[in-house]
Design a protein around this nucleic acid. Sequence first.
DNA 1: TCTGGGGTCCTAGGACCC
DNA 2: TCTGGGGTCCTAGGACCC
Length: 403
Amino acid sequence: MPPNRSILHVDMDAFFASVEQRDHPEYQGRPVVVGADPKGGRGRGVVAACSYEARFFGIHSALPIGRAWRLCPQAVYLRPRGARYAEVSGEVFGILHRYSDLVEPLSIDEAFLDVTGSRRLLGSAEAIGRKIKAEIRAELGLVASVGVAPNKFVAKIASDIEKPDGLVAVAADRVQGFLDPLPITRLWGVGPKTAERLRSLGMQTIGDLSHRRREDLRASLGEAGEELWLLARGVDERPVVPEGEAKSLGAETTFAEDTSDPGRIRRTLLNLCERVGSRLRRSGRVAGGLTLKFRDEDFATSTRALPLSPPTDLTEDIYRAALALLEKTGWRGKRVRLLGVAAGRLQPRAEGAGAQLALFGDEGAGKRRRVAAVVDTLRERFGSEAVTRAALLEGEGEEEEKG
DNA sequence: TCTGGGGTCCTAGGACCC
DNA sequence: TCTGGGGTCCTAGGACCC
């Protein structure tokens, strides 16, 4: 690890809303809220992103959409267009890669760059940050905020401090002075629960924490406390790691109203399994495990998991496992708010996997894979709601599918 | 005013093995 | 009849992030 690193954190400002305003000039200057359907104030979701005009009314991300509606009914309310944002995100990352090979995505609209090795050729880290902002604006018509610091943690905070359109550089000898006055909630990994715990121990600011003894934090918060202590002192040695493969892949949905209707529950579950299976097949991977998520009308959430052996990317296999997991939740008689399915233990699909399955006595696998390919094509062409596999819903295990 | 959907990581506790 | 300690793997829950 070089002793004097230059790390950038680049964070797009109001990303989803800004893409919508750029794609639809008539939305410019207006409050734009991207998120769930507000349904006249009765919608169940939350705000995913909103423009700065909307923030003026007190709207912010994660706000229940019904509340946003009451604050500003005249705003433009839009459903997220995930594929579009992914496309624009790719263009943003294209610009970032001009300045370093070490680009680590943190989400669709945020990344770390290690520009330590780029400084000689491309100028100071701060100058690089300025160029990145200028190119994002000129080429994409979007605004980013940038933080420059000796490590990831400080760079991330720095990018946030002067949002929107900010550029904040923190030199190594100014890190402690920069951090100390900030509230503990700025620490990475301190959410509502940990913040409450720290406050009950008399700590309000990062300075309050950095002035404690390391052993005291270890005693009260364990290993996590020690890590917080290090962050509070501006110590963060984590390297910038270019993108790796995702470790899990899931889909979940909240019902428009809580339901105990078995047919509706099974149809929804099948649709989730189809979405997960389809994404697995597209990514060329198989899942070695499945987790079902279940939330009841009281918002109590539970999960059940099992291994998938052999690993699979087929909707039928995933759905069968999901039904077994659903039984383990004891769902009957309860009203369901949310169902989710997540594939884990992902691994590359082996070549000739179908032939291998045949050895295990599963001759239908090749055929089912071909059916899956057709379904995927139809769904791509006509949308994910276009194709329902009626055959999988019938019988409910009393009747085997015939080939 | 109820609280989305996509993820990651950590921990506690039980099973199992030596 | 009660008795250990370590290691590993697994599941469920939960905190956190965007």
